[in-house]
């Protein structure tokens, strides 16, 4: 394993924290705690730190909910999570996971739709979504994305890379 290459890539991308593997409820909390501590030592403003934490929580919980609905095993339910900074110092939260390709296409289309909304429209959409009846008590998937979109300083970016006939790797990046 070429750790130097990894290190160089982390440094180039200004990676603060990254994780790859099956993600459990308690792991989300533990990584979240590490993230908060790290942001604290970086003296990030409390509001900025909370935005990063919120994006991280919504993304990882969305991945967990999706994997559970799909009945994925641990391996398939793996998440790739990266928290970094862009060259202007904005925090970036990225998360990737395995999806059924049609689901990924729908999700990518949703992200594109959100990118066209301004702040007031995002707020209205968020409030509308909040008032939707709770279909699946374990999930507010659409609400989570709207929440991240509202906290983002620029539109979220999504990409879908095919892995097999039916499955793709979906990645989402939010810049706070």
């Amino acid at each position: 394993m070429d750790l130097l290459k990894m290190r160089e890539s982390y440094q180039r991308e200004r990676v603060m924290l990254c994780f790859n593997g099956p993600i459990s409820r308690s792991l989300i909390e533990e990584i979240g705690k590490a993230l908060r501590n790290y942001l604290d030592t970086q003296q990030a403003a409390p509001a900025a730190a909370m935005d990063v934490f919120a994006a991280y929580i919504e993304m990882t919980q969305n991945i967990r909910h999706y994997a559970r609905r799909q009945g994925y095993d641990d391996e398939q339910a793996s998440a790739t999570v990266v928290v970094s900074q862009d060259d202007q110092g904005h925090y970036r939260v990225s998360a990737g996971n395995l999806v059924q390709t049609p689901d990924g296409e729908r999700l990518a289309a949703t992200i594109d739709d959100l990118a066209r909304l301004d702040r007031a429209e995002l707020k209205a959409a968020y409030k509308r979504q909040l008032r939707q009846p709770r279909v699946d008590a374990s999930s507010g998937a659409g609400l989570g994305l709207l929440d991240i979109a509202r906290k983002s300083s620029r539109p979220m970016r999504a990409s879908l890379q095919p892995l097999s006939d039916q499955q793709s790797f979906f990645s989402l990046t939010a810049t706070l």
């Binding site: 909370m50 919120a54 919980q61 374990s138 507010g140 609400l143 709207l146």
Partner: peptide
């Protein structure tokens, strides 16, 4: 302090 969206919905 911090509420995820699912908690926001419950509080609403």
């Amino acid at each position: 302090v911090y509420l995820n969206t699912s908690s926001v919905k419950a509080m609403m």
